[in-house]
């Protein structure tokens, strides 16, 4: 089911820009956000809501910029990999501290750490470029230096492959003993401990995985935009990631991407006719989905899929 839905989504995202070219950029941004939202959705499986995951989104983006500027690494795939590793490591370190907390406290501590990071990004001008941010140049591909236009196409289709890969891997993880133990943390942590399983360790792995996904999403975003700013780590972006996860639906991994595509499309159209009101539109859309579609947008697809399969 997941396989069919995610490939369907990727096909739509691959074909539409052939007719409407500027959609390619919108979709690449959507995949970036969707990867990060998938990370947030993983944590939601464990009943943990983070309003600070923009931290890892920004870590991924800034890691890419730093690696290019300071270490002279320009190879696209290597940058994707290294930035994700950096985000994962940061996630592991911060996670050791976070796994002690649950519910509101978990949410707020993530918020606090991300706000510290946001402030550092904004204030440490000599390292981070402060509020001006940093430029992310066009990377090389297996040693070749593509033009910006060529690279954008590579990024556009490459990100769709990342999307499929991430959705399938996370799907397997969530069905594995470790992933099911994560949902078990949500429903009965005491029982989980009485099975001899450390709930904290289960959460730590999920947390690191979610940081990795958010970091990867941030890197994709950095490459797509070509310029990064501290606002990537601001708490409203974190809120947006949770919004995307729930809007799309956490019942399946394609949900996060469906939510992200929906959000980016609405934003694009809203900028055209009501630039100052796009948050109102998103806010109302969110409330409508929460009130009337408890399984999110992906629930719609899932339900029709199920009905179709019943004889």
């Amino acid at each position: 089911m997941t396989l069919r839905h995610i490939i369907g989504l990727a096909l739509i995202a691959a074909v539409l820009p052939l007719a409407v070219p500027w959609l390619g950029f919108v979709f690449t941004l959507a995949v970036g956000k969707g990867l990060a939202a998938l990370g947030v959705a993983v944590l939601l499986r464990g009943g943990l809501i983070s309003i600070g995951h923009a931290l890892y989104f920004a870590v991924g983006a800034y890691a890419t910029a730093f690696l290019m500027r300071n270490d002279g690494i320009n190879e696209f795939l290597l940058l994707l990999l290294l930035s994700t590793v950096v985000a994962t490591l940061v996630g592991l370190v911060v996670g050791v501290f976070m796994v002690r907390y649950r519910a509101i406290f978990f949410a707020m501590l993530n918020l606090a750490v991300s706000m510290v990071f946001f402030t550092l990004l904004s204030k440490m001008y000599h390292v981070t470029g402060g509020t001006d941010g940093l430029r992310v140049a066009t990377p090389t591909l297996f040693g070749f230096a593509p033009s910006r236009v060529q690279f954008n196409s590579v990024l556009q289709y490459g990100s769709l492959i990342l999307m499929i890969g991430a959705a399938l891997i996370v799907d397997r993880y969530l069905r594995s003993p470790l992933g099911e133990a994560l949902s078990a943390v949500h429903s009965n942590e005491v029982r989980l401990e009485y099975l001899g399983v450390s709930a904290r360790r289960v959460i730590l792995i999920a947390y690191a995985a979610s940081a990795a996904l958010a970091g990867l999403g941030g890197t994709v975003t950095a490459f797509a935009v070509g310029h990064i700013v501290p606002e990537l780590s601001y708490w409203t972006i974190s809120g947006q990631l949770v919004l995307i996860a729930v809007l799309g639906g956490i019942g399946g991994t394609p949900g996060a991407f469906i939510g992200a595509f929906f959000l980016e499309l609405v934003r694009t159209f809203a900028v055209g006719f009501a630039a100052d009101a796009w948050n109102v539109i998103i806010g109302i859309a969110l409330l409508i989905v929460i009130f009337f579609l408890p399984e999110g947008l992906y629930g719609l697809l899932h339900r029709t899929g199920k009905q179709g399969s019943t004889p």
């Binding site: 993880y173 069905r175 594995s176 470790l178 099911e180 289960v202």
Partner: peptide, 9 residues
């Protein structure tokens, strides 16, 4: 052994 991330439960 709960630490299996990819085989199904």
């Amino acid at each position: 052994g709960i630490w299996q991330p990819f085989r199904p439960l």
